[in-house]
């Protein structure tokens, strides 16, 4: 119980830290804070600028500004994008949906394929296929995700023309969506699977070595089927934590893949915001992404606590 409490407190502190960072960064950075808060290259008249300046209240003391900021947050007001002429919050909502969709699918697919392939590879660790696949897995996990996406893009879209170039769909049918999302999901899955693969493989090899000697001695009780199930069970627990820790990393990778495939998700939103120095969007995106990742971690932690019998036994 004590551990769980500690962890929860840390999560809360973390969320609070992110909220505060989000508040502090634009105000601490070099340059005119108003520009930092509304974005550069924005065409507004001097009057509007002054109006904005007093609205944002940069002349008021810091804690008042912070209070206003928190107040806005609670009301889900993340500011206004002068570039795109829309509420940041509503922009993010639209885009986030697609990103989460594609990341979610990829993580699940990647976890399943990676884990299964990794377990097989670890079990038959001497076979040539296993070694070959491991090399491929290593190569994939060492490549920057966007580069992998670029290769796929140039081969499958430009050269072979199998998949469409950009956007999420031509007509709003599921078939079209699948057609468009297929390639990004494949790339993302490969990327997340490769990490899971390597970890699972290592974990199975370790388990195999620790049980093998034991079972080899007790030859009579040596049953491959039971051994396999037992190892899988033991080796899967660290996987859950790994997926949780990785969520942030994978989500970030997804952003780049979206940019490469020109999908209308968070990725392109952020990319355009960077080009146009649209800071409110960037801030809003940072907040939303960071909190999503932390919540995912929290969820995984809770899940892990429920599943792992060792954890339960210790709380007496």
């Amino acid at each position: 119980m004590k551990n769980a409490k500690k962890k929860l407190i840390r999560y809360l502190i973390c969320i609070f830290a992110i909220i505060t960072l989000n508040f502090a960064i634009p105000r601490a950075m070099p340059g005119d804070p108003v520009m930092n808060l509304i974005g550069e290259d924005v065409m507004v008249s001097a009057d509007t600028l002054n109006q904005i300046r007093s609205e944002i209240g940069l002349d008021r003391p810091v804690y008042e500004q912070f209070a206003t900021y928190l107040w806005n947050l609670i009301h889900l007001d993340l500011g206004y994008s002068y570039h795109l002429h829309a509420d940041v919050a509503s922009l993010l909502c639209e885009r986030m949906f697609w990103t989460l969709l594609f990341v979610g699918i990829a993580i699940i697919l990647g976890a399943i394929t990676g884990t299964y392939a990794g377990a097989l590879s670890g079990w038959y660790s001497d076979s040539k296929i296993s070694r070959a696949v491991t090399c491929v897995g290593m190569a994939v996990s060492c490549t920057p995700p966007y580069f992998l996406a670029l290769i796929f893009l140039s081969v499958f879209v430009f050269r072979l023309g199998i998949f469409p170039f950009k956007a999420l769909y031509d007509e709003p049918t599921i078939a079209s969506v699948i057609h468009h999302l297929a390639l990004p999901v494949i790339v993302m899955t490969l990327f997340s699977a490769s990490r899971n693969f390597l970890i699972m493989r290592g974990s199975v090899i370790q388990e195999k070595n620790s049980h093998y000697a034991l079972y080899a001695r007790a030859k009579g009780l040596f049953d491959r089927g039971i051994l396999w199930k037992h190892i899988l069970k033991n080796a899967s627990l660290p996987l859950i934590t790994q997926v949780a820790l990785d969520f942030g990393f994978i989500f970030s990778g997804a952003i780049f893949i979206e940019i490469v495939f020109s999908l209308n998700g968070m990725g392109t939103l952020i990319y355009d915001a960077i080009l146009g120095r649209d800071y409110p969007v960037l801030q809003g995106a940072f907040l939303v992404i960071a909190i999503t990742v932390i919540l995912a971690n929290l969820l995984a932690d809770i899940l892990y606590g429920i599943i792992d019998p060792r954890v339960r036994v210790n709380e007496r």
Binding site: R10, Y11, I13, C14, A17, I18, L21, I25, P26, M29, P30, G31, N36, G248, F249, F251, S252, I255, I270, A273, I274, R277, Y279, L282, Q283, A285, F286, I289, A290, V293, I294, N297
Partner: peptide, 24 residues
């Protein structure tokens, strides 16, 4: 360690993006 844990949980790449976007 509490401090380290909190920092561990903050997703790095979004933070780097936002910092890099503000700094030249």
């Amino acid at each position: 360690m509490g401090f380290t844990d909190v920092v561990l949980m903050i997703p790095k790449i979004p933070l780097i993006i936002i910092l890099a976007a503000f700094l030249r």
